[in-house]
Computed example of a mutant assay.
Amino acid sequence: MNGMTVSNLLIGIGLLLVLAGVAYKYGLLDWFGHLPGDIRYEGDNFVFFAPFGSMILISVLLSLLFWLFNR
Rank of each mutant, 00 (worst) to 15 (best):
58 I>F: 05
33 G>H: 02
47 V>M: 13
10 L>R: 10
45 N>E: 12
56 I>D: 02
71 R>K: 14
44 D>P: 04
59 S>C: 09
70 N>P: 06
23 A>N: 09
50 A>G: 08
11 I>D: 08
19 L>M: 11
4 M>R: 13
48 F>Y: 15
50 A>C: 11
62 L>W: 03
20 A>I: 06
39 I>N: 08
15 L>T: 09
22 V>L: 11
16 L>C: 10
52 F>S: 08
18 V>E: 12
1 M>T: 10
70 N>V: 15
8 N>W: 13
3 G>Y: 08
17 L>K: 09
45 N>M: 10
50 A>D: 07
65 L>Y: 15
67 W>I: 10
27 G>A: 00
62 L>H: 01
42 E>I: 06
2 N>R: 04
28 L>M: 13
19 L>K: 06
12 G>F: 01
24 Y>M: 11
11 I>Q: 12
7 S>L: 15
28 L>F: 15
27 G>S: 01
44 D>N: 11
41 Y>H: 06
27 G>H: 01
67 W>P: 01
13 I>P: 02
13 I>H: 07
10 L>S: 07
54 S>M: 02
46 F>R: 06
20 A>L: 08
34 H>A: 15
55 M>H: 01
43 G>H: 03
18 V>P: 02
56 I>M: 06
12 G>M: 03
25 K>Y: 14
34 H>M: 13
67 W>E: 12
24 Y>W: 14
44 D>L: 08
47 V>K: 10
1 M>D: 09
26 Y>S: 07
49 F>D: 10
21 G>N: 10
12 G>T: 05
68 L>I: 14
11 I>N: 12
32 F>Y: 07
38 D>W: 00
53 G>Y: 00
32 F>Q: 00
25 K>Q: 13
53 G>P: 00
61 L>V: 02
57 L>K: 00
30 D>T: 03
7 S>W: 08
32 F>S: 02
1 M>I: 12
19 L>A: 15
21 G>H: 05
48 F>D: 06
66 F>H: 04
18 V>R: 06
66 F>T: 03
33 G>E: 01
49 F>A: 12
20 A>R: 05
60 V>F: 02
52 F>Y: 15
35 L>C: 02
68 L>C: 10
43 G>S: 06
3 G>K: 11
51 P>I: 00
69 F>V: 09
38 D>C: 05
31 W>Q: 04
48 F>K: 10
54 S>C: 03
61 L>N: 04
55 M>S: 04
39 I>Y: 14
2 N>P: 01
59 S>Y: 06
68 L>E: 12
45 N>F: 13
53 G>V: 00
56 I>T: 03
7 S>V: 14
22 V>E: 02
4 M>S: 09
46 F>G: 06
32 F>G: 00
17 L>E: 09
9 L>N: 08
61 L>H: 04
56 I>V: 07
51 P>K: 02
62 L>P: 00
38 D>M: 03
23 A>C: 07
68 L>P: 01
50 A>F: 15
37 G>I: 00
9 L>I: 13
67 W>T: 12
16 L>D: 07
6 V>I: 15
46 F>I: 07
59 S>T: 08
52 F>E: 09
46 F>K: 06
19 L>W: 10
22 V>R: 05
